[in-house]
């Protein structure tokens, strides 16, 4: 199961690099995001998987697709990079991937704690609920977010307010030169 999801994610992530059609990029992003959601389910973080699907796939991605639709009236929607730029980017990406994986080989990862035997992804034998991820219930999340991370929670709320104001300001059509009193509320 892991390999299936991982292959899906890596393939669609790299497909984004190689395609120059913005609509295809958005579709591949959909696949990659769903793959990540699947991995969250696999790791027994059901709430996160659901949030990822609802907010990320259902919200952010749709927003991006709206953006694509509103701005891609251009011929062919392609905006192809110059060939050498594309090639340089791809080569650079592959080199980067290699370097990063090398870095991982030479790094000590923390020991895995799940007592159900190292390496056993908890969700593989799902239904248990007593495995390491079992703590990730909605109730536990609520307690942590409103307890230890209360401040971050509040700031995130204020942040969303500001973002809404900013985005609304930028996106609405104001004709401010005749600002005397004619603008909409």
């Amino acid at each position: 199961m892991f390999y299936l999801l991982a292959a899906l994610m890596v393939a669609s992530a790299w497909a984004i690099v190689f395609t120059s059609n913005i609509v295809r990029m958005a579709v591949y992003l959909l696949l990659a995001l769903s793959g990540a959601a699947g991995l969250y389910f696999l790791l027994d973080a059901e709430l996160l998987g659901a949030v990822q699907l609802i907010v990320y796939v259902g919200g952010t991605l749709i927003l991006i697709i709206f953006g694509v639709m509103l701005t891609s009236r251009e011929i062919g929607m392609a905006l192809k990079p110059k060939p050498w730029e594309g090639a340089a980017g791809v080569v650079l990406g592959i080199v980067l991937a290699g370097v990063l994986l090398l870095a991982q080989v030479y790094s000590q990862l923390p020991a895995e704690i799940s007592s159900q035997g190292a390496g056993a992804v908890p969700g593989a034998a799902s239904g248990g609920g007593a495995t390491s991820g079992g703590g990730a219930t909605v109730e536990a999340f609520g307690k942590v977010i409103l307890g230890r991370y209360l401040l971050v929670f509040e700031v995130a709320g204020v942040l969303l307010l500001v973002v809404m104001v900013g985005a609304a300001y930028l996106a609405r059509r104001t004709s401010w030169p005749r600002s005397a009193g004619g603008t909409q509320p």
């Binding site: 700031v155 204020v158 942040l159 307010l161 500001v162 104001v165 900013g166 609304a168 300001y169 104001t174 401010w176 600002s179 009193g181 603008t183 909409q184 509320p185």
Partner: peptide, 23 residues
């Protein structure tokens, strides 16, 4: 440079950025 209708938006963004920087 900005209309009266946009003034609260500007001030809200300014105060929001200030709060972020204080944090």
């Amino acid at each position: 440079r900005i209309s009266a209708a946009d003034t609260p938006d500007f001030l809200c963004l300014l105060l929001g950025a200030t709060a972020g920087m204080a944090l």
